[in-house]
Amino acid sequence: MELEATPDDEVFSSNDEMQELWPLGEVDPKKARFPCCIVWTPLPVVSWLAPYIGHVGIAREDGTVMDFAGSNLVSVDDLAYGSAARCLQLDRKKCCFPANLAEHVCARSHEHSEAGTAISWDDALRSGARRFEHKCYNLFTCNSHSFVADCLNRLAYGGSVGWNVLNLAALVWLRGRWLDRAAAVRSFLPFAAVSCVGVLMAGWSFLLGMAAFSLMLLGWFVLGVYCLKGLVG
């Protein structure tokens, strides 16, 4: 699965100049500040059965997290379902911030314009929030991953405007980091407990059932993203 495009350097530039980027602050989990990061936290019940599924948000340059938390609701500095467990800080140099929208000539300028061109990191997040404030939340068709993927497309992160719930989830899991050991335990302990209780009560067939559940979920998102275009936002 392709995580991010790796085209030539000109993909990230518009004309011959970029918007000036100022230094970011440090990631500070205690203060819930994650500058230009994607953050992940487990979902109640769902993550107990499939621990790779969770809730994600994306942070502004000042570290404040924004997330699609419910229908017509994009939360600011109030990550739904608890504090972040994993985070991945993104490189703004891999985004396309045209210095002049009228002269947007990056390699994917047309696709980027259709996705929603942004002049800064925070501008992309604001535009994405305005769009999702008019959307209904649904775990299977339009969820927190949909919002973050939309923001990445507005940023043309990695030179790509093809971000979706699947390659975003893979990016976070393969390249993100646990904030501490307690976060990892908090994420996997319920899954381990449910698995142990299930095996004791129903035998090893319970684990087969959980595996089937995971495959069905994965199959749904593959179908919705790649086969039935527009089904999964």
Results as ranks from 00 to 15, higher is better:
1 M>Y: 07
40 W>R: 02
194 V>L: 13
177 R>K: 09
128 G>H: 08
155 L>Y: 11
85 A>M: 10
31 K>Y: 03
63 G>E: 08
214 S>E: 15
109 S>W: 10
205 S>G: 09
6 T>M: 06
212 A>K: 08
214 S>F: 13
43 L>T: 11
185 V>E: 09
166 L>F: 01
117 T>K: 03
26 E>D: 04
211 A>W: 15
149 A>E: 01
10 E>S: 11
69 A>M: 06
143 N>K: 03
19 Q>P: 00
133 E>D: 03
13 S>Q: 15
194 V>Y: 11
171 L>A: 03
73 L>S: 05
183 A>R: 14
127 S>D: 05
47 S>W: 08
184 A>W: 14
79 L>D: 02
125 L>W: 09
8 D>I: 02
123 D>I: 06
227 C>H: 11
3 L>W: 07
142 C>A: 01
143 N>P: 00
222 V>P: 00
148 V>N: 01
89 Q>A: 01
219 G>W: 12
144 S>H: 10
199 V>H: 05
100 N>Q: 14
68 F>G: 04
62 D>F: 09
117 T>D: 01
153 N>Y: 09
152 L>N: 00
186 R>E: 12
71 S>F: 04
30 K>N: 05
18 M>H: 05
11 V>A: 13
6 T>N: 07
112 H>T: 01
183 A>E: 12
40 W>N: 03
39 V>M: 14
10 E>N: 11
93 K>D: 10
198 G>V: 09
173 W>P: 00
108 R>Y: 03
169 A>R: 13
80 A>G: 02
197 V>T: 03
195 S>I: 15
180 D>K: 13
119 I>P: 00
70 G>K: 04
12 F>L: 06
184 A>H: 12
54 G>C: 03
189 L>M: 14
140 F>Q: 03
155 L>H: 08
76 V>R: 11
168 L>C: 04
216 M>L: 15
142 C>D: 00
19 Q>A: 06
221 F>E: 04
6 T>I: 06
44 P>I: 06
188 F>K: 13
140 F>M: 09
53 I>S: 02
178 W>C: 05
218 L>K: 07
135 K>R: 10
25 G>T: 14
129 A>N: 01
48 W>S: 02
2 E>W: 11
42 P>Y: 09
54 G>P: 05
154 R>P: 00
23 P>M: 06
157 Y>D: 02
226 Y>D: 06
33 R>P: 03
10 E>G: 00
48 W>Y: 04
31 K>D: 02
5 A>K: 12
114 E>M: 05
212 A>Y: 12
223 L>D: 04
152 L>F: 02
158 G>R: 10
130 R>W: 00
73 L>T: 15
193 A>Q: 10
13 S>R: 15
220 W>P: 00
118 A>V: 05
177 R>A: 04
214 S>Y: 14
119 I>Y: 00
202 A>V: 11
